[in-house]
């Protein structure tokens, strides 16, 4: 275990061996990770894998059962107050006041953080969010996409150094999602560190680094390329007719770890390259189907990680 309290200045988050149990069930297990300052760090994993729990431990909302770590150089156990002052946390569920207007919510946040001239800060943020004309609308009456924008605005308003965004784009339309990500990149360019959890593969690919967590275990981390390479997965893409029968047929063949339909094609993946090759060769020359060897997609890798994790930890 490293002396986490003396984190290097270019490290925003450094945690070692974090664990957390609820009612005797361990939901985060021995989790270690490092996030460099100024990067966008994607946090992926299936439902209930412990993403929210980890993020809450990072900002002092939950106390880890064991493990140590620093956030912006402050101890996550002892210096929660200092961390809170410098971190913007956007919760998974909308948690601003539904019965306060957009402006009132922002002014509340600005006052709490001691921002100079809260009214002006709120006004500026409303303009920046493109919410002009909606300042007096109650937050609870905003559409899903606007709620997310408002929540992002509220947590960036006090000029944090680190943003923890928990599924900020869940249920948001593609255009709004793209705008949201442009915003996040703009913030990172200004020097902010962003840790963002998501279920979307395209969003994962827009991150500088990603981590994959399942059943509370951190299974992979690094850049997208590193994660794909580390999976040592070989993937074949099949197009053509009768793919459903083929999928059923292939599922229990040697070397095949995963068969997943992707739109009009089928992804056949396996870690044992030779065995997969042998199986595929007997199918490859069938008429009406076209086989192509390719790199696995991030999704292939994640589904494979998750399947293996289920076998190991369940």
């Amino acid at each position: 275990m490293t002396a986490a309290t003396v984190a290097a200045p270019d490290i925003a988050i450094e945690v070692t061996g974090l664990s957390k149990s609820f009612n005797g069930r361990e939901v985060v297990h021995d989790l270690s990770m490092q996030v460099k300052r100024g990067t966008i760090y994607g946090f992926l994993g299936p439902n209930g894998s412990g993403k929210t729990t980890t993020i809450r431990m990072l900002c002092g909302l939950l106390t880890p059962d064991s493990g140590t770590g620093t956030c912006l150089g402050f101890d996550i156990r002892r210096d929660a107050d200092k961390i809170k002052r410098r971190v913007g946390y956007m919760t998974q569920r909308f948690s601003l006041y539904q019965d306060l207007s957009v402006r009132e919510n922002l002014e509340f946040v600005a006052r709490l953080y001691g921002v100079r001239d809260p009214r002006k800060a709120a006004r500026d943020m409303i303009a920046r969010l493109g919410l002009n004309g909606r300042d007096e609308q109650l937050a609870g009456e905003l559409s899903g996409g606007w709620k997310q924008r408002l929540a992002l605005g509220a947590c960036t308003l006090p000029n944090p150094q680190l943003l923890l965004l928990d599924e900020p784009t869940a249920g948001v339309d593609p255009k709004a999602r793209r705008d949201f990500w442009n915003e996040i990149h703009a913030l990172a360019a200004q020097g902010l560190t962003v840790l963002v959890s998501t279920h979307y593969m395209d969003e994962a690919e827009r991150c500088h680094e990603i981590a994959y967590i399942a059943y509370g275990h951190l299974l992979a981390h690094g850049t997208v390329e590193q994660v794909i390479a580390a999976s040592s997965l070989a993937t074949w893409t099949v197009t053509g007719a009768d793919l459903n029968e083929l999928a059923a047929d292939l599922a229990d063949k040697p070397g095949v770890d995963m068969v997943a339909p992707f739109g009009t094609s089928l992804h056949v993946s396996g870690r044992d390259h030779a065995a997969l090759e042998a199986t595929v060769s007997s199918y490859r020359d069938r008429p009406g189907q076209h086989w192509q060897h390719g790199a696995p997609s991030l999704e292939d890798v994640f589904i494979d990680l998750m399947t293996r994790a289920r076998d190991n930890f369940q």
Binding site: C59, G60, L61, D81, K84, R85, V87, Y89, T91, R93, F94, S95, L96, Y97, Q98, V109, L112, Y113
Partner: peptide, 13 residues
């Protein structure tokens, strides 16, 4: 119950 506590607690109050 309204879920606003999580946000409130994440702020320096």
């Amino acid at each position: 119950e309204r879920g606003t506590m999580e946000n409130l607690l994440s702020m320096p109050i």
